[in-house]
Write a protein that binds this DNA or RNA. Structure first.
Lengths: 258, 258
DNA sequence: TATTCCGATAGTGAC
DNA sequence: GTCACTATCGGAATGAG
């Protein structure tokens, strides 16, 4: 500091660091990262429609801040599981991995039918299915839903649009597996990390498990600094999140029409 | 990029860089950093009150975005001077340095009287002057302004509140010397660099010239990353500009009362 | 990597 | 370091019964 500019040097810094904050006893210890526990412990108490299904082993919920047209979370209810790190549990517990795979297979059909509901009418490759379904339902005695699939052409492969897996470093404290459509068209995709966390190796997909011990996937390094690349065309948007979003909107329009 | 997520790889990046912008011929080539030239070339045409004084060698203007209660710029009119880098010209041209010092001495009295006009009434150390002046002016035959100084006590040393000098890397292209009060209380102090540029060694004061050849002052390095320290009490605000501003407001209140 | 708010940092374009 | 605008990056606090 320049002596010339110093006339008074009184009591040192007023920058005392954190301002002392009065907290009520109730507030101490609150952690928003524990937010999933209420779904795990008492799914029956959730009445806002966010619980899709549950049994003694798992709860399935809609993500509160969906990053795509459909975005579910699969939550194991056993504390011995949900306190573990996802990558460890899915790489070292074959029974758990097997159970999760079974559930994911089931959830994919659920998500696929939801995608068909949302976008089937405007999808070129789903037209055969849509036409055949319309045909089927206009008969005098339409078959029940369970019998329809066998009677219809496959149409668009909606399951190919779904990704399922876990984040290398989850922010929410309870083990959760993401199941979502890959288009990332959502108002909740608000920044770079939202996108990167689903479309880079930071996302470990279900078919990559079990990871081998010491796999590099456990240590992604400085992933928030990675470039953003369009999941559909591969274009590199570097760190230009707004530009990526505009592009994703365009890709979304094309994607729906496929 | 993950192959799983890539269905289509079409034409590369839509990130085409700069958008082509239509410019009128008149606009092409204008550089806002050349904004001082109009004061230098035609001070007589400036009718907004921003020209304080001028002659054949210099123009004195009020800074358009004053960073303190008073903020003037001294501009040499000779192209052989105003095209030079301030540090070089003031370190290698003794005649110029001498002329500038003379002008600065004069301007300091001007700025000091302006500070007295703004803050004299509330200044403790200026009270003897203010009282004596009131006394003098209430006589039957008050003396003219030119005669008053000799008849009055000195009061506050307002010139000690003034800094004069140049920035190591000026943004405006024409050589200019800053003369301003050091309190930095102004709505135009909007970011870190505004503050640092006047209260670190990035500012070379008039009494530091001539710099010796090869002086480190020519290369301040990464000065925008330097900590901000209160010019008055020395408190270190690191990179907390907003906090510094709040503090400077408090210091300003004390400073006025001195 | 939960969100949200705020603020610091960085790039650009401007006459 | 000219300003002004936008966007990116970075830390801190955080709800609900």
């Amino acid at each position: 500091m320049n002596a010339r500019t110093k006339k008074h040097r009184t009591s040192p810094p007023p920058l005392t660091g954190k301002v002392a904050r009065v907290k009520t006893a109730a507030k101490v210890g609150f952690d928003p990262r524990d937010g999933l526990i209420r779904y795990i412990e008492h799914p029956e108490r959730i009445t806002d429609g966010s619980v899709v299904e549950y049994d003694d082993k798992f709860v399935v919920i809609k993500d509160k801040f969906p990053k795509a047209s459909v975005h579910l979370l699969l939550l194991p209810r056993d504390p011995a599981l949900y306190t573990q790190h996802s990558l460890i549990a899915l790489s070292t517990d074959p029974t758990f991995l097997s159970n999760v795979r079974t559930r994911i297979a089931h959830l994919k059909t659920l998500v696929a039918s939801e995608l068909r509901r949302q976008y089937g009418a405007n999808s070129a490759s789903d037209a055969p299915y849509q036409t055949a379904l319309e045909d089927l339902m206009s008969r005098p005695n339409p078959p029940p839903p369970s019998a329809r699939t066998a009677l219809l052409p496959p149409g668009r492969d909606w399951e190919a649009e779904i990704i399922a897996g876990v984040h290398t470093h989850p922010s929410m404290n309870h083990l959760h597996i993401h199941i979502l459509s890959r288009e990332m068209h959502s108002p909740w995709v608000k920044h770079k990390k939202h996108y990167l966390s689903f479309h880079t190796s930071f996302m470990v997909h279900m078919d990559e498990f079990p990871l081998e011990e010491g796999s590099k996937r456990f240590k992604p390094g400085d992933w928030p600094s990675w470039d953003m690349e369009c999941w559909r065309c591969g274009a590199n948007y570097k760190n230009k999140f707004k530009k990526l979003c505009e592009h994703l909107s365009e890709e979304f329009e094309q994607w729906k029409k496929e």
